[in-house]
Simulated scan of single mutants.
Amino acid sequence: MDWTLEVVIVPVSDIDRAIAFYRDQVGFALDHHTVNEHMTVAQLTPPGSGCSIVVGTLPAQNAMTPGTLHGLQLVVADAAAARRELVDRGVPCSEITAFDERDGGTFFGFQDPDGNSWAVQQIRARAERPLIPLEARATFGG
């Protein structure tokens, strides 16, 4: 049986600001944004990912303090290009650090406006072997 991680709740203090940051600066796709008398929920997905983040006002989201989620990790084929893209979009990023010269040992990081922190890991093999093949991405909307 497969067990897939498909959604991670990110606690934020301002949903519209979080949507703008993750969509416009980080480059995630806004899958949906639901606002009604019971809730506000937005789901955003990184390009090429099968896992999304959700921000909103549901009880599970309200149970966490904004800015307390740390250690989320994104994987890219080229850390220097990814960092440059984020910096060009106005996202402050740490410098790139190579902890190990083997593939997977290079990282940099950034934070959202609330202080939730992200690590970005370089795995060069993703360029040839993405987790979601390009031909399947249309199915996922990305």
Rank of each mutant, 00 (worst) to 15 (best):
P113W: 03
D16W: 00
V75Q: 14
R102N: 13
A63E: 15
G90K: 06
M64R: 14
S49I: 06
P59V: 03
Q61N: 14
G71M: 11
S94H: 08
T57F: 07
E6R: 15
D114W: 12
L74F: 14
I96Y: 10
D31F: 00
A60N: 13
L86A: 08
I96T: 12
E101P: 03
L74Q: 07
S52K: 09
W3L: 15
I53L: 13
V91N: 05
G50H: 08
F28Y: 13
Q111D: 15
G71F: 08
C51H: 01
I53V: 13
G48R: 06
W118E: 04
V10M: 14
L131E: 10
L69H: 13
V76A: 10
I15A: 02
P46T: 06
A82D: 11
H38V: 07
G115F: 08
I132Y: 02
E101Y: 05
V35G: 01
Y22P: 03
E101C: 01
R102K: 11
V7Y: 13
I96V: 15
Q73P: 00
N116Q: 09
P133G: 06
T40M: 01
G71N: 08
S94Y: 10
F28W: 11
P92Q: 13
T40K: 02
T45V: 11
L69K: 14
D24Q: 09
E6F: 12
Q25M: 10
G142Q: 15
P47K: 11
G141T: 12
A98Y: 00
V54S: 13
G67F: 11
V55G: 01
G105Y: 08
R23G: 01
Q61V: 05
T106A: 05
L131A: 07
T45K: 13
F140P: 03
D114T: 11
L86M: 09
Y22K: 03
E128T: 11
S52T: 08
V7L: 15
V8E: 04
G115T: 04
R126T: 14
Q111G: 09
I53K: 03
D31C: 07
V7K: 11
A82H: 12
G50I: 03
I19W: 08
S13Q: 11
D112L: 05
G56C: 04
G50K: 02
E95K: 06
L58N: 02
T40L: 00
